Computed example of a mutant assay.
Amino acid sequence: MTKEDKGLPPVKGPLVYRQSIWTRLTHWVWAICLFFLLLSGLQIFNAHPSLYIGKQSGFEFDNSVLSIGAVNTPDGPRGQTTIFGQTFDTTGVLGMSGPAANPSFIGFPGAVTIPSFRDLATGRVLHFFFGWIFVAALFIWFLASFINGHLRRDILPRTGDITGLPRDALDHARLRLHHGRSYTPLQKLSYFAIFFLLFPLIILTGLTMSPGMDAAWPWLLDIFGGRQTARTIHFVVMVLLVLFFVVHIIMVLLAGPLNELRSMITGWYRTSPGTPREQGDKP
């Protein structure tokens, strides 16, 4: 008979101090920045809702990999999205949205852009403003995480994390979530990919689209195969970050939102029963 069956309070693991003040601050700064970067980025994308591979683009080229717009049909105008030559009717979502009596012919609807109306100048100002805050927060996080050991302890994967990945992935798929002192192998590898692959990629491709940066660092164009290819990579990385965010929120809800929020607000995290206690832990 368990303690719960006897009417006794359930056994709890110790509260451990898991997140430093620097990790918590930069986490929330990134959350705010990425929100505005996404919505202002879609505003910028709407100025020319097509993506290309190569150094050139235009009506005379056939190197588009994504195109969002509207077309006239016998039944009236319809929203249309073309991906790698495959065309889809996206009326009401992409290319043509809004009320049937007064539709808006725009790539992404105004509900998911900042500003909600067509204003490329304001979208660019907001995008650059939050982009540089994002970069500054990333620099602060790397410096603090290197000094306090968070980078070595919780982000950089070790041999044991690689070998333990299949089992940890299976546990996550079965919703057998573990609350330990440090991140699980799947978490470590996910955060490693975010910090060392996706974040650098989205920053560098963003710089590659700037004529000023191209003049200062022309090698960026060579690395990414031109400004148009960099724009496409930038968009793909944005999609991957949105997918990561969705999965991240789902896992937070499944793992216990109050415990996860407490960790990112106060730094204290409730571990699973049976976790060995150490000096400084709370009951």
Rank of each mutant, 00 (worst) to 15 (best):
L261I: 08
I114S: 12
A255R: 04
R231L: 14
D281C: 10
H234S: 11
L151F: 14
L143G: 04
H172N: 06
I44Y: 00
L261C: 03
W268D: 01
D5W: 05
P283Y: 08
G123V: 10
S104G: 00
K3W: 10
L42G: 06
R277S: 08
L151Y: 12
I194H: 04
F235E: 02
D281W: 08
I68V: 14
H248T: 07
L34N: 12
S64Y: 14
F105P: 03
K6T: 05
L243S: 03
G69M: 00
E4F: 09
V252Q: 01
V252T: 13
Q56I: 09
S50H: 06
V11I: 13
I147Y: 05
V112H: 08
R78T: 03
G256L: 02
F139C: 15
E60I: 13
T91Q: 09
E4H: 10
D214S: 15
A230C: 06
Y183D: 08
Q43V: 01
A193F: 11
T163Q: 10
F244S: 13
Q187D: 06
P257F: 13
F224S: 04
P109R: 00
F128Y: 06
I155S: 08
T82P: 01
G79W: 10
F196N: 05
A47I: 02
L38T: 15
G226L: 12
N72W: 12
L201R: 08
I155G: 04
T90V: 05
T122P: 01
N148C: 07
V135T: 12
M264Y: 06
H178N: 05
Y191C: 06
R174F: 11
I202R: 04
F146K: 11
V247M: 11
I147R: 11
D119V: 01
P9H: 08
P109W: 05
L165W: 04
N148T: 06
S272H: 09
I44H: 00
T91K: 03
F244Q: 13
L240E: 13
S210H: 00
G98S: 01
L51Y: 02
D75E: 10
T73P: 06
V65Q: 06
T113S: 09
K6S: 10
I223Y: 08
A216F: 15
H179G: 02
F128N: 11
F235S: 00
D154M: 05
T23Q: 15
E60K: 14
N72I: 14
Q56T: 12
A215N: 12
R118F: 00
R262E: 09
G79V: 10
L151D: 06
V236G: 05
